[in-house]
Structures are given as C-alpha cells and as structure tokens.
Design a protein around this nucleic acid. Structure first.
Length: 1029
RNA sequence: GGGCGGUUAGCUCAGUUGGCUAGAGCAUCUCGCUUACACCGAGAGGGUCGGGGGUUCGAGUCCCUCACCGCCCACCA
C-alpha cells in the first residue's frame, strides 16, 4: 500500500481541504488575470450582490455556474477573468441601516444628518461586503479579487458622472413631473416592486359635491365615490363619461361575451353583474347623460371644505358602470387622475407633507395625519349633510415593503432618462443576434419591455447613492433667466466638456437653469453655489450604476488596457427577475458609452423555489444559507447540486429539512417553523437555533443545519470519487510510466478509453450550450456507473502479475482525465486528489507522457481523441455487462449467498465467445460465477436456470441450489413479457400503412427485434418445459 | 386582462430533431460489514406521462382546448 493512500481518510474531509486549497490557489495568484494579447479572454462580471446582508441559495446557484464556466474556460486555455464586486443597493441598504439606528439608538436619519448617515452606511457596507466576499470564497469562486469593485467606489462613481453628463449633454436626460410611491415613514420614493398590496377592511364613501348655480331641472349635487375622502382637498375636477350610453353598452357586451365562455362556477356572479349593470342603466343613465351635457356646457362644482370651484369634465376614465358613475379627479395623488389632469390641463394640488401629514391646503385640518384627517373630514362632511352613503368594502392598500407603512402617491419632479433611442438600440442588439439570450424565450420579455420605451425615472429621494450632479437655480422672470444663462455660458464656454446646461421653462417667462458638472470635485460648483445654484439632493436609481457595471469596473471612461482587452465580456449569468431592470439597461448603456454590446451571451438560470413552490425570500424566511450547506455537506456537494438542478426550466424546487443538532433527527420545514429563530426538536425536545436567530439567547443555542436529498446525493458522489481515488492511489504503488502500447490493451481498456472520449465530447458540448444539468448527469453516470462499478472492479483482478504495469498506467491516465472533467464542478475534491496523484504517478499519459501540471486548476481541458472512440468495443462490453447482470439477477432471485460460488456456461457464436472468454475472470470476481464453457457447444447442466439475451444464452448450473417455484415464476413472467412485446411488434408489422409509410430502417428494426424476441420466447419455453421434468 | 413556464414513479427531476419495453437520485422491499467507499454493493417492486380532442403508420414529445400551480407585465375611484 502506498503511504499517501494510507494517510487519506475514509471520508473526504472537505472542511480542512477547502480552506487550504483556496488559500493555495490564491497565494499562487491563479485567479488573477492580466491582459495578454497571446491568449483569448473569457470574461464574466459578477451580478453584484446587494450589500444588505448575506448570500442565499439563489446566489450560490448563480455564482457556482459562473465559477464553473470560468474554471472550464481557464482549463481550455482562455485567459479567464471573473470580476467580483457588490452593489450599494440604494434604498434596501439605507432602509436596513436606518432601521437599525432607529432601533438601537432611537435616532431618525434627520436627527443624524446626511453625512453621518452615509458614514454609518459605509461602515455597514464594509462589514457585509467582507461577509459576502467570504461566502463566495467558501463556495470556491475563482474571482480575480484584485479587481473587486463596488458600485459606489471612486472608479464606478466616475463612470456614473461621465454617463450622466453625457446623457444630460445629449438631452437624453430631463426633469419631469411624476407621481411616485411615497413612503411617508422613510420619507422617500420607492419603486413599484418595493410595494405590495394588502387587503384591508375599509369604506367607500359617496360624497355630494354641490353644483354651482344649477339650472332648472339639473341636480343640486354630483355624487362621487371614494375610499380616500381626505384626498378631496386636492380635487381639481369631477369627471363623467362623455358617452355613458355607449360605455354601458360596451360593458354589457363584454360581460355577455365572458358569460358565453364562463364555466358553471363563474356564471352566477357574472349573471349578477349583468343584472346590476342593467339596473344601473335604467336608474342612472338619464342622470349621467345629463351630467355629460352639463360638463360640455362648462358647468362647475363647488368643492366642499376648501370652497374651490372645479370644473365638471368629460373623460373616458370615468366608467359609468363603476361607483356613482362620476369620479373625482385628484391629479397629485392618483396616477390615473394624473393622466386625466394632463389631458385637461388641470392644476395638480398636493395635499400632503413629506411625512404624510396634511399640508396647508387642508386649512384647519393642516398637520393632521392622514388617518385623523380622514376622520375629521368625514365628520365635517356628515355634519354638512354632504355624505350620501357609506359602504363597507375590502380595499387593496399599497404598503411599502421596507417600512411596512401605507404608500402615498406623491408628486415629485425627478430626472428621467429618455428611452426612445436607447431602448431601440438594445432591442436591435438582441434581435440582431449581437446579444444572445439563453434560453431564447426570455428574449420576448426583454423586447416587449423595451418596446414600451417608457422614460426611466432615475431620481431617488435617498442619501445613499450617487448624488445627481446637477446644480439648479430658479429664475423668477425672463430677464433673470437670460442673465443667469449668459453668466453660466461665460463660465462654461471655455470647456464644453466640463459642464452642460439645460433650461427648463414652463411659461417661457420663469424657469430653472440646470447645470451638470462632469467631474467630481470641480471647483465650478462653488462658484455656482455662490450664484445661488443648489445641488439636487436626490441620488440616482441603483440600477443606473449597475447598468454601467460591465465597463465601469474595467476603468471606463479611461481608455484602459483592461477595457480594450476584456470588453465586451463573454457571458452574463443571471436570474430572470432582472432581465429588464438590469440586463436591458446594461445593453443600452454599453451601446451608448462604448458603441458595443456589453456581453455576447446571457445565460438565464432557474429560480430555486422552496418545497412549497414559493420563491425563497428573506421576508418569507424560507431562504437557505449556503454556509449551512457547506458546513454540512461541503462546497463541492453544494456546487454539484446547483449544477445538477440547472435545467432549462424556469423554476426548480428544493425541499429542505432542519437537522436537529442534538439528535440528528430530520425535521420537515413547514410554513410556520421555517421563519422561527428557534425550534424545539419534536424528538428530543431540545431547542436549537436557525439562521434567523438574532438575539443572544437564540444565538447561543446549537445551530440546526439544513438537509436536503439533493445535497446528500451530491455529497455521496463527492465521497464516491474520493474513495475511487483512494483505491487508485493504493494501487499505484511502484508505478512507473511506460507508454501504452495499443496492441496490449484489453477489451475493457479500449472500452473505458472509448467511453472517456465520448464523455469528454459530450461534456464539452453541453457546457458550450449551458446545459449544466446534463453535464452533472453525464459525469455522475460515467464516474459512478462505469469508472467505479466496472473499470475499477475489473482492474482489481489485474493488479497482480504481468498486467500490473499496464493496469496502473491505464488507471493513472483514466483518473487524470476524470479529475480534469470534474474539476470545474467540484474543484476542491478534484484538486486535492490531483495533488496526491502527482506524488504517486507524476508522469502519466497514453502513448506519451503528458506535460506535468502541479495544480489541476491550471491543467488543460481534455480534448476528445476520435481514434479512441470505438462503438463496436462499447457494444461488446455492453454484452458483458448484460451477461453479468443476468448472473447477478439469478443469484438474487434464487437467494444464493454471495459466498456460494456458482458455475455457468454461455451459449453463443464463436465471435462473441472470442471477446467474452477473456472476461471470464471478471464474472468470477464480480458475480462469484465460474464460466465452464463459452461458445456454440455449451451443454446445459442437468439442473439449470437460463437467461436469454438477444445474442446469447446464460445457463447457470443450479444443482442443489434451484428453487423450482421461484425459477418457474421468473420464467413465466419473462414469457408473458416477451409475448406482450411480440404481440405489439406483430401488430405494428401487420399494419400495412406502417410498413408502407414508416422509414425503411424503422421497419427493418422492428422486424429484427421481432425475430430476436421470437428466439427468446422459444428459449424461455424450452427452459420452462425442462423445469417440469 | 396580456405574456411566459410547469403538470412524467411516494418525493425531486431527466427525457435532444415524434420511432426498441418512458429513465435517474432519494424513499420502499429483499440480500450482503466481498481488504476504495454502508455517504457502499447486488437485486426487486412502483408510472394508462394533468383531463379532453386532433395531426400521424406511430405522440410523454407536434397542434387545439380545459383545469390546476408558479413567475413577469398591466390594471382595479
């Protein structure tokens, strides 16, 4: 036994190995890349994780795939460069830190001040960035750490400034009005996807607005319905449909259409709706027609409380089938009303302060919270007799995901990026094939989203982020505007690259001058501030800096050597959730800034769902911490699982269990327990902590790890490889490299070489097409099912005597190639084994010795050698496998103890016998069965069991061993099976149209199969009758 | 409401362009501590491929339709 092998533990000790090898790779600088004209680059930029917290299983998947590609291409000889980094994640990060400061110190961000808060967030960032990067390292990611970037660092900041300046200069960025989702608690706008709806019990108030000077016959009041009565303070019109009769007809016909194809369960409610609609038409239509007429006549309404005259207008937004048929228009607090307001040039009256209290518009209600204000306004209206009716109603309340407080619609004037041309360029890039999205179906969503070409609001009312580099000054009149404009031009004229000017003028008389400065720290800002210019307080949307990630990280706008060499990057690996938000914007920004797409291929991987089919998320608490998995199963196992589950589907389920750290009981996850910080084990009744443990009491409990069949399967595979290698090393004692003489090779050698060639070819192709699960499957099956189960088993018999040297050479060579193929997926275990193989068999190869390579990470990716591919050999070996299977089957069925030797003969052609005979020792070794004769003249022993394979009969001597009943049952089952198949075949072949129309080779195949089956049946029948004697 | 994906063994998933008896892992059952591995080895049982219709000599695979699950987008005074 070799001394190396003796030292190896029986189970792969991943904990120790991972750290040591990662350090070794890093110390030797093997992850680092420099531009090298002699090599082709292969570049990936990481989708930068948010610095809000820790990585979850989705990140583990995303980053595993990237590392697999990076390592594979590195081995292929590419200059692989994986650029790591993190994202400042504007609102998410600021919200987390603000919340902590509030909880721990009771201070709001306003008490702390902008500078202080930003400092505190930087501290947080440093801590979490370190944690995230460490997680990536534990996963084995071979990132070029020297190039680590952060979306808010100086390099990225410069790119952001230059890009914004450029867009500003080209008039692709402008300031506009827009309703934003306003979080009154955090006092910031939040994006749509940070808002969720909650169903709450509310009311639907029908308010009476008096008509000013009603004509005879006209109603004294117009009734409007609302769930938000306090917003009436900001009403600037009441709308009615211009043609209510037609609108009602239309509503009816669409209801009728739905009813026609409705299933029974829906019918009743649709019929109810239809009935209601018709009642409404009868009751309200005359009134609505009248109101529409009054609106055209320019009739006005007196808005109660604020006592303001507002117009009655016609607009199709007012649906006669809803509410009272009339709708109050509040442009400053409702997106639809905002659009109506634009169509009718209505004023926009904001009624709220940023903290959500009513502002001065509310008069005596000023300063009240929305809730209180609503209450008092309703009371007041009631007293004035202006409430027609109140209904109870379930309403959808928008809630901020960050603060869990209700969202208000709030009028702001953010900066927008004009998307028309930029979006088109990104559409063209994908439609023209310059960027390929894989799987291709995701290209549809990408194009559809961009096709809307909606301008991109980029202002965020936050402190954490890239502050917008625009200084503005309001000018009260034309003269001042001209003056300021002249002055600024005189300052800027000398250098148009330094500053750009936009004039925003609504009336042509008054307006605002905006100046954008390109460079951070430009002294011009001081001059401007002295002139009364004020810098915009907002920061840019996080996606603005993320959109530049592929080139800002490489040093753009400087013309760096990195940029020239690595841009465009090769592949982007991402999840489908951010194809529009991120991928699309990277494409258009790359095109805008560099005139070239940022990457050639985008691989979109599946989303990992929990055992209930729900997406994993922090708020649900169903996420899995990859470090738990690494601790329990090892990084290689986690990686293999991730690769194995990456199919082309869009989701994949990962049911997990907790493992009790006290008694190792596996505890199913439920909706309830998965969010708990501590769980009591149902078996041993002792408590343990989960990843959600936060307070000290919980954190001091032992941690319950995460279990999953998928991880166990992968860990077992890693261990299988480990032990196969241990076995190999044990048998490499005294190994001396000698070139392998092909004429000396046995069938099994040529078989494994052929299989190895096939597998190398397949794996390479599957990698090229991002079919990760196929890669995992092929490697798993080959390693376990062929290399271990057959080749190693056979070699056991060849390790003594004259064959030892050849067997060792073959073993060293095969293992070498296998390790290379597995390395991208399982880097630690393969590198660890490689290092040992280098000691035991430094020189190895086939006809000549391979170049020696101390580290597997640097070794070359195998290239399939077509001369080793031999389908005939593969078929011959398969015959051996089938024969062996038949022997084992009989042993198992007849319940013959493994130690009990049996003997058998095979009846077959001379040709088959010629290649099967040399394999006799392996029947002995692998089935404890002695072949007494192989060939046409085999004579069945008196008591036997026969198995008929397509081209041979295995006849086992069962003298004194045969259980007749069992054997009879087996044969009868076999007979029935074959008869069924024959029946199916005959049916097919007697079908004239099959014989006529199916391709001749298919027909011939059926005929051949039928012939073989008939022979088999005959043989089974013979065996059965023999049994009866 | 629009778009996309899924529904195959008890569970989690494969199944390339339609063509031998639909596969794997786990779980279950039987046997085995055979000197690489019990995180192992040998074997077995288990599926009318979500329902219905169609195209075809032939459908898990293509088309239509329905149902359920999930995701994205839009909208709901």
């Amino acid at each position: 036994m070799s001394s190396i092998a003796e030292q190896l533990p029986i189970r792969f000790d991943f904990g120790a190995v991972q750290q040591r090898l990662y350090q070794m790779w890093q110390d030797k600088g093997l992850f680092h890349s420099e531009p090298d004209a002699a090599k082709k680059p292969f570049t990936i930029v990481i989708p930068p994780p948010n610095v809000t917290g820790a990585l979850h299983l989705g990140h583990a998947l995303n980053n595993t795939l990237q590392d697999v590609l990076i390592r594979w291409r590195r081995m292929q000889g590419y200059n692989s460069m994986w650029l790591p980094g993190t994202d400042h994640a504007g609102i998410a990060t600021q919200a987390v830190v603000e919340k902590r400061i509030r909880e721990e110190e009771g201070k709001s961000r306003h008490e702390l001040g902008r500078e202080q808060l930003v400092n505190r967030i930087w501290q947080w960032k440093d801590q979490y960035e370190a944690r995230i990067l460490s997680q990536l390292k534990q996963l084995g990611c071979s990132c070029d750490w020297e190039r680590t970037r952060f979306t808010l660092d100086d390099v990225c900041a410069k790119a952001v400034r230059h890009t914004f300046f450029d867009l500003f200069h080209k008039n692709l960025v402008y300031r506009g009005k827009r309703l934003v989702n306003w979080d009154t608690f955090l006092q910031t706008a939040v994006s749509d996807d940070e808002v969720y709806n909650e169903k709450v019990a509310g009311h639907f108030w029908h308010l009476k607005y008096p008509v000013i000077d009603p004509q005879p016959g006209e109603p004294a009041f117009v009734i409007v319905a609302t769930t938000r009565p306090e917003t009436m303070l900001g009403d600037t019109a009441v709308a009615v449909h211009p043609d209510p009769a037609a609108a009602l007809d239309h509503a009816e016909s669409s209801l009728v259409a739905r009813l026609a194809k409705a299933v029974a369960s829906e019918k009743a409610s649709l019929e109810g709706e239809l009935k209601q609609l018709n009642e409404r038409r009868a009751g309200m239509l005359p009134q609505l027609l009248q109101l529409a007429q009054m609106a055209s006549a320019g009739r006005q309404i007196r808005l109660p409380i604020v006592d303001r005259a507002i117009p009655l207008i016609t607009d199709e937004w007012a649906k006669p089938e809803l509410g009272s048929g009339c709708v109050k228009i509040t442009p400053a607090h409702d997106p639809n009303d905002y659009d109506v307001g634009l169509r009718h040039s209505l004023p926009q009256i904001n009624v709220l302060n940023p903290d959500g209290t009513l502002n001065s518009v509310a008069g005596r209600f000023m300063g009240l919270t929305i809730k209180k204000g609503r209450q008092q306004i309703v009371e007041h209206l009631e007293e004035s007799g202006l409430i027609d009716s109140v209904e109870d109603r379930e309403i959808e309340l928008p809630v901020s995901d960050r603060s869990k407080t209700p969202i208000e619609q709030y009028l702001a004037d953010p900066w927008f990026v004009r998307m028309e041309a930029l979006a088109q360029s990104a559409i063209d890039a994908v439609e023209g094939g310059h960027v390929q999205i894989i799987p291709n179906r995701y290209a549809h969503g990408y194009v559809a989203w961009l096709s809307e070409k909606r301008d991109w609001p980029v202002s965020r009312q936050l402190w954490w982020g890239h502050q917008i580099p625009v200084w503005s000054k309001k000018c009260a009149n034309d003269v001042e505007l001209q003056e300021v404009n002249q002055h600024v031009w005189s300052l800027v004229e000398t250098d148009a690259e330094r500053a750009a000017v936009q004039i925003e003028s609504a009336s042509g008389v008054e307006g605002t001058v905006h100046i954008c400065l390109r460079e951070e720290g430009d002294k011009l800002s001081e001059t401007l501030e002295k002139l009364g210019f004020v810098r915009d307080q907002d920061v840019l949307d996080t996606w603005f800096s993320s959109a530049l990630w592929t080139h800002s990280t490489l040093g753009w706008p400087e013309h760096t050597a990195d940029l020239k060499y690595y841009y465009p990057t090769s592949t982007l690996v991402t999840s489908r959730g951010i194809i529009t938000l991120w991928v699309a914007r990277m494409v258009l920004m790359g095109l805008n800034n560099l005139g070239h797409v940022p990457f050639r291929e985008v691989f979109v991987h599946p989303t990992i769902l929990d055992g209930f089919g729900e997406t994993m998320s922090k708020s649900k608490g169903n996420g899995v911490d990859p470090l738990d998995v690494i601790e329990k199963f090892g990084a290689d196992a986690l990686r293999f699982s991730m690769v194995h589950l990456t199919t082309e589907t869009q989701d994949v389920r990962m049911p997990v269990q907790f493992e009790c750290p006290h008694c190792q009981t596996s505890i199913e996850q439920t909706h309830k327990n998965r969010v708990l910080a501590r769980i009591e084990c149902p078996a041993c009744k002792k408590p343990f902590a989960t990843q959600w443990a936060r307070d000290d009491a919980d954190l001091h409990l032992p941690r319950g790890l995460i279990l999953s069949e998928r991880f166990e399967e992968a860990r077992n595979f890693v261990n299988k490889l480990w032990n196969a290698s241990r076995f190999s090393l044990m048998n490499l004692e005294g190994y001396q490299f000698t070139p392998i003489d092909p004429s000396q090779l046995c069938l099994e050698d040529r078989w494994i070489l052929s299989r190895l060639t096939t597998v190398t070819q397949l794996v390479t192709t599957e990698f090229e097409h991002y079919r990760f699960s196929e890669v995992a499957r092929i490697l798993y099956d080959f390693t376990w099912g062929e290399f271990c189960s057959f080749y190693l088993e056979i070699l056991k018999s060849r390790m003594t005597g004259g064959q030892r040297n050849l067997a060792q050479s073959m073993l060293a060579f095969t293992l070498d190639r296998l390790l290379r193929l597995l390395h991208p997926v399982m880097p630690f275990v393969t590198e660890e084994i490689w290092q040992s193989v280098n000691v035991a068999a430094a020189e190895r190869g086939l006809s000549s010795s391979d170049p020696q390579q101390p580290n597997l990470i640097q070794a070359s990716w195998p290239v399939p050698d077509p001369t080793l591919h031999d389908p005939q050999v593969e078929a011959q070996f398969e015959t051996f496998q089938q024969a062996l299977g038949a022997l084992r089957d009989i042993r198992a069925r007849q319940n013959i103890a493994p130690k009990q030797p049996i003997s058998f003969c095979i009846r077959c052609t001379e040709e088959i016998a010629a290649y099967l005979s040399p394999l006799s020792p392996y029947f002995k070794k692998m089935a404890n069965a002695e072949a007494t004769h192989i060939g046409p003249q085999a004579i069945p022993p008196r008591v036997n069991s026969t198995t008929t394979l397509p081209n041979l009969e295995i006849i086992v001597d069962l003298e004194g061993l045969l259980d007749v009943a069992v054997e009879k049952a087996r044969l009868q089952k076999e007979k029935a099976n074959i008869e069924n198949q024959i029946k199916a075949k005959q049916q097919k072949l007697s079908n004239a149209s099959f014989v006529d129309r199916a391709p001749p080779d298919v027909v011939q195949r059926e005929r051949d199969a039928a012939k073989i089956l008939t022979d088999q049946l005959e043989s089974v029948i013979k065996a059965l009758s023999g049994l009866k004697q």
